[in-house]
Design a protein around this nucleic acid. Structure first.
Length: 487
RNA sequence: GGCGCGGUAGCCAAGUGGUAAGGCAGAGGUCUGCAAAACCUCCAUCAUCGGUUCGACUCCGAUCCGCGCCUCCA
């Protein structure tokens, strides 16, 4: 089995074969840092994270670049409205972005280049395009790319540009372009830009949007690299234009595989502020959802399928994760690893922190776990079919719980399955629970209840259980003793 | 108008030319002092209408509905 992905360029599923064997170079379109990112944005970043993690799971070395677009119309406008220099304005949102990625357990990329730190590279690229005659300067001093000079234009979006040249849709204010579909490589300075400007050989101004990704992608990954991703809305014009300007400049194919994730909708509708269904990650964390829960919700749908975000399904995630945690706890108990979540009353305190061997997966794996590993791998190999991978995981949980009920899983087997879970989690990033804070008062009540139980004082025992429930804790009586779970 | 994606159980969501994964919720049962957790059992004929086929949810056509792109939105 090999890892196969859907390539937008060919509209077919292809095996991942990087130019350099075993090393994938990928460019993932990042945020425009003029605001807090919303959950739709993070759906894309989580898709990219899954891609990255599965590549690594498959043994590839990954070099990932994610750009930070810190100069564009909206960014300039907002920074001026707030009376802040561009860098000072974007700093806040860049920091928020990285904090949000951490909340969602996204693995860091190798490079996070900011557009404003790479203007010289962009100028050089534009100069090359001017020298080659595929770009031209308009009356106002802007530089445009002439799509008529690039025969392959439209190959990614599968657009036939001939129909667009009629001029019917040319906007009034775009008279300076030779063709309506030509796009800006460089925008001449105007008053609205304030002090946001750089000097180029052809005049003062700022780079167009598309050029940053070409310049930075090539700088960090080479003139030709393996993978480029983004949301479907980036296919045209952004990625189409990247291909045109990059390939026109270098004469080499820019990117081998293009992957695009579908959008997220909320309750079946496009997310918009006017509908009141627009959420940033921060909004949802504020409503009490954890990064882990949101990660699961945003990750569990296949990336090429539009994701219907609902609070109902987000609540379902909480239950599903609870079952995952329960399974890990049981495995640890069987493996003889003291679980910090299990409060043993009586002789054993929670002091011992054993480093019991999480053995190398593959050894001692029960048949059902081996089967799960194979199904899990095959699912993700098939264009990141994460839903099927999760199904394999849950099938394993059912089989594993059954084995533990029947006492057919020994300590070594349990340790091996724990090791397998860790391998799964290297890809999914959802299995490690959030730190559960301990509550001394609750533990005292738990001990009292245990004493009441030993005295067979059931009314008192039940009363204490109710009291704990009031405080947000539910009790589970296990063979290892009673356990507290946060509701 | 052009191009593209999708409509699968109460909700979320995979999938296949031969009679539908998984999760959540729900019902019954086992276990438990009672619970909780776990396990077992049950719970859909795949938008509609035609067609192709021995056989379609899966292929083709039409219709309805939802969503996206068609110049800077992941």
């Amino acid at each position: 089995m090999a890892f196969r992905i859907h390539n937008t360029l060919t509209r077919s599923v292809e095996e991942v074969q990087p130019a350099e064997a075993g090393h994938v170079r990928m460019y993932t379109c990042g945020p425009t840092v003029y605001n807090f990112a919303h959950i739709g944005n993070f759906r894309a970043y989580l898709f990219e994270d899954l891609l990255r993690r599965h590549l690594k799971f498959r043994g590839f070395r990954v070099t990932q670049v994610m750009n930070l677009t810190d100069v564009d119309d909206k960014t300039i406008r907002s920074s001026r409205e707030q009376g802040l220099p561009l860098k000072a304005f974007t700093k806040k949102y860049i920091e928020a972005f990285f904090a949000d990625l951490k909340t969602l357990r996204v693995e860091p990329a190798e490079h996070y280049p900011a557009a404003t730190d790479h203007v010289p590279e962009m100028i050089a690229l534009i100069q090359t395009l001017l020298d080659k005659g595929v770009a031209y300067k308009s009356d106002d001093g802007s530089i445009y790319f002439s799509i008529a000079k690039f025969p392959g234009y439209g190959k990614l979006a599968h657009l036939d540009m001939s129909g667009l040249r009629s001029g019917a849709r040319v906007a009034q204010d775009e008279y300076e372009k030779e063709s309506a579909a030509d796009f800006a490589l460089w925008k001449a300075w105007d008053e609205q830009d304030g002090d946001v400007a750089w000097d180029a050989p052809w005049g003062r101004g700022r780079p167009g949007w598309h050029i940053e990704c070409s310049a930075m992608g090539m700088k960090y990954l080479g003139p030709s690299f393996d993978l480029h991703t983004g949301g479907v809305d980036n296919i045209f014009p952004h990625h189409e234009d990247e291909i045109a300007q990059s390939e026109a400049a270098t004469g080499h194919p820019f990117v081998k595989y293009w992957m695009h994730c579908a959008h997220l909708v909320v309750d079946g509708k496009k997310m918009s502020k006017s509908l009141g269904n627009f959420f940033t990650l921060r909004d949802l964390v504020g409503k009490g959802y954890s990064g882990r829960e949101l990660r699961y919700e945003l990750l569990a749908t296949h990336y090429r399928q539009s994701l219907n975000f609902t609070f109902e399904s987000l609540d379902a995630v909480r239950s599903a994760l609870g079952r995952l945690d329960e399974f890990s706890d049981r495995l640890r108990a069987v493996a003889g690893i003291v679980d910090p979540g299990i409060q043993k009353t009586g002789t054993t305190g929670p002091g011992e922190t054993p480093q019991a061997g999480i053995s190398d997966p593959g050894y001692n794996l029960p048949a059902w776990a081996q089967q799960a590993l194979e199904a899990f791998t095959a699912a993700l190999d098939d264009d990141l079919n994460v839903s099927a991978a999760l199904a394999a995981l849950f099938d394993m949980i059912t089989a594993g719980n059954r084995a533990m009920n029947e006492k057919t899983l020994d300590a070594a087997g349990a340790a091996a399955v724990l090791g397998l879970l860790q391998r799964f989690d290297a890809v999914l990033g959802i299995l490690e629970p959030e730190q559960q804070q301990t509550d001394a008062a609750a533990e005292a009540l738990l001990a009292q209840r245990q004493a009441a139980r030993q005295a067979k004082n059931w009314p008192e025992s039940d009363r204490l259980r109710d009291e704990l429930k009031q405080r947000g804790w539910v009790i589970q009586d296990t063979p290892q003793g009673p356990k507290l779970k946060k509701i």
